[in-house]
């Protein structure tokens, strides 16, 4: 992607149209093929604990029309708040149930998926897209013990992801999320330079 240093002012993406399109197509690709891991074309510096991948997602998808929620770790950082306010213009909301997008910097402390906006039966699209920063994101073989194994639209057979750290009861949460279908939230996982997704339409196996 267009190499980009984050300047003190100005857009975070050097050639906005080109970079945003490349990032968006990657997001489309991983959401349409759940379990697929793709390189996320980002190359800019962000204030910790905001990772470049979380920032890339926000800059590409969020603006003043899409309320943004940050978890406690991100919200505690004045620099992260300033970065996101400046580069997205997003309205920050304190309740996860009001957010179009949620950025999670500390997955182990994240609220349960049901705390986010679920949409309504008439408008299931009025729901939160949850973007979770993880340390580890790797392909796995379906059925592997520590992996998340799932099936559904976009998946030829079954898919699996080795992803973490995540809350211990994530399988239960995802099964409940699937039970609410077509309401529910869609999850993106971002690690260093990579992204994958599990949409609400995926059925996660092996709840424990």
């Amino acid at each position: 992607m267009a190499g980009t240093e984050v300047p003190a002012s100005g857009a975070a993406l050097a050639d906005v149209a080109k970079s945003a399109q490349a990032i968006f197509r990657t997001l489309v690709d991983v959401l349409a093929r759940p379990g697929t891991i793709r390189p996320l074309p980002v190359n800019f510096i962000t204030p910790a604990p905001l990772t470049p991948e979380l920032a890339a997602f926000a800059v590409t998808m969020v603006d003043q029309e899409a309320p943004l929620w940050l978890d406690a770790r991100l919200a505690a950082s004045e620099a992260a708040l300033r970065f996101l306010r400046f580069h997205t213009g997003a309205r920050l909301v304190s309740a996860p149930s009001q957010a179009s997008f949620a950025l999670v910097g500390d997955a182990l402390a994240m609220p349960e998926l049901q705390a986010f906006a679920q949409g309504t039966a008439d408008y299931p699209d009025a729901s939160t897209t949850v973007v979770i920063a993880v340390d580890h994101l790797a392909p796995a073989s379906p059925g592997a013990r520590a992996a998340l194994t799932f099936a559904g639209p976009g998946i030829d057979g079954r898919a699996a992801l080795s992803v973490g750290p995540l809350p211990l009861n994530i399988r239960v949460q995802m099964a409940e999320n699937r039970a609410r279908y077509p309401r529910g939230v869609d999850c993106f996982f971002v690690s260093r330079g990579h992204v994958a997704a599990i949409p609400r339409s995926a059925t996660v196996f092996g709840e424990d």
Binding site: V16, A17, K18, A20, Q21, F24, L27, V28, L31, A32, T60, M61, V62, D63, E65, A66, S100, P124, D125, S127, T129, P153, G154, P182, D186, P199, R200, S201
Partner: peptide, 25 residues
């Protein structure tokens, strides 16, 4: 690039992500 302004594209892109997550809706 591609005629539409970036904010319009973001709005359409948000709709596309929801559409993919809820097939047929």
């Amino acid at each position: 690039f591609a005629y539409l302004d970036e904010q319009t594209k973001r709005m359409i892109r948000r709709a596309i992500l929801k559409a993919i997550a809820i097939p047929g809706y």
